[in-house]
Amino acid sequence: MKCEDFQKRISKLIDKELSADSMDALHRHLLSCADCSEFYERSKDINHVLNSAILMAPNTALAQRVKEKIANKTKGSMTESRPMFWRSVPVYALVALLAVGVGNLAGKTLVHSLLYQNSESALELMIPNGTEYLSDIFVDIGQEGQAQ
């Protein structure tokens, strides 16, 4: 086995992913190979430093800001979208009445016009943001993969 193969095992050993039956050969190699021993020590050291990021927690205010933002969003969807829909109805009713006035609703009744408007708004309420589906969220994986 080449040193590169042992170093792959070292990487797994550090990650606690190396199977027990691969350990013996690795330990024997480490006793006799300076390069792999150095790789082991340096990898452990990098791990320790990377792991220290855990000790350095992000600003505690961040979670608070996220909660406030979400609270604002939920309030927003309750108080903004609905009045906008109901405000728009009288305008449509007025337009429709004017159309009735000239005796032509382009083949549609007043009720039909209002219902049509109604269903469109209901759909908008159900889908607050049409672009944010899971498929969008999962887009991009693999796009940067080719470069490596």
Binding site: S52, M56, T60
Partner: peptide, 25 residues
Amino acid sequence: PDFSFNPMSSEAQDAETLMSLKQRF
């Protein structure tokens, strides 16, 4: 530096260790 240190951790007791860890991080 924009991390704040977690005072609950045992390594936090040692300011020097923390400084060197931060620098290395």
